[in-house]
């Protein structure tokens, strides 16, 4: 198992290298000049050239890449062009809101979706099943921002239960943190509820036809325990896969939600950095996202061994 983890981690190095090259090239091969943006509308050509030189953008691309990778290897992500801060600090600052949002979202989604999926499977073909699956289609199709504004309108403006937007750090109190996060997390979770519920239903349905379900019933087990102890436990692997995939996709999803609810997280940082052509920040954020993706995939593969003793690495 330990050897397997080492091998998997070693395999991420080439992946990260490819990502690094692609990000770097994409940014430099698309037209737009960060120096011009920083200099502003009234700057003349000398001022822009001056800034470009200061940022090191006058060097050949190969040299720029070599400098960046060397620094990267030393753990130095560089300084942001736009925010005038170390990128590391910038990210550290924005990490908490994004992670909070992602984790809360996936917890809400799993808590709603798994019971729904199990019930839908158990009552296959009934009106209950159809309602759950209907909502699941709806959840897939409605865009995140529509759900976001709808929830804001109902729960923040009409009912006044939650604030319209903003974020409060966990260190300033759990209650406030949760109150401000709940609407955005719900918004984001809709699509994952749909996804996970569907997957749960399918894999539970598949398992319900297995012989050991019949065995459990022949022992006199109650339907509830047949569902949870025997069916769900065996349906866990595909569900965990979808949840893991969900976490990884969430990182992308937060860009919109954070904008709707003005949460100062990584999503917002990405949008701001892209608009400002802030190369070091964009590069760092994308590298981080890729790393998270790889690590989550590894974590998912490792959790398989918890749910299915037949899987060993």
């Amino acid at each position: 198992m330990f050897a397997y983890i080492l091998r998997r981690l070693a395999a991420t190095i080439p992946v990260m290298l490819v990502v690094a090259v692609l990000v770097f090239l994409m940014l430099r091969l698309t037209p737009a000049d960060p120096a011009a943006i920083i200099a502003g509308d009234n700057a003349n050509a000398e001022q822009v050239a001056e800034i470009r030189k200061r940022l090191g953008l006058d060097q050949p691309i190969m040299t720029q890449f070599a400098i960046w990778v060397t620094k990267l290897a030393q753990g130095d992500l560089g300084e942001s062009f736009f925010f005038k801060k170390q990128v590391v600090e910038l990210i550290a600052d924005r990490l908490e809101p994004t992670v909070s949002l992602a984790v809360l979202t996936i917890i809400i989604a799993a808590m709603i979706a798994i019971p729904l999926g199990v019930i839908a499977a158990y009552k296959q073909g009934s009106w209950l099943d159809r309602i759950v699956m209907g909502f699941s289609v709806l959840g897939f199709s409605v865009p995140v921002f529509v759900i976001g504004y709808l929830l804001i309108y109902v729960f923040a403006i009409q009912l006044n239960w939650f604030p319209v937007q903003g974020y409060q750090r966990l260190s300033q109190g759990f209650g406030g943190w949760l109150q401000r996060l709940i609407l955005p997390a719900f918004t984001l979770s809709v699509i994952y509820v749909a996804l996970i519920a569907r997957m749960t239903r399918t894999s539970v349905l598949e398992v319900m036809n297995e012989d050991y379900i019949r065995t459990a019933r022949a022992k006199g087990q109650t339907e509830m325990k047949v569902l949870v102890r025997h069916a769900l436990a065996n349906a866990a692997v595909p569900i965990v896969t979808v949840v893991g995939l969900g976490i990884a996709l969430l990182i992308g999803g937060v860009v919109v939600t954070e904008s709707v609810y003005t949460i100062p997280g990584l999503g917002r940082l990405t949008v701001d950095a892209v608009l400002a052509r802030d190369y070091p920040t964009i590069q760092a954020v994308i590298l981080l996202f890729s790393l998270v993706y790889v690590v989550i995939n590894l974590a998912v593969d490792l959790t398989y061994t918890i749910f299915d003793p037949r899987i060993r690495y």
């Binding site: 012989d211 050991y212 065995t215 022949a218 102890r229 025997h230 436990a233 866990a236 299915d308 037949r310």
Partner: peptide, 15 residues
Amino acid sequence: AMIFQEPMTALNPVM
């Protein structure tokens, strides 16, 4: 009580 044909699939594989 009952026992079944296929002992591989009649037992819950994750228990």
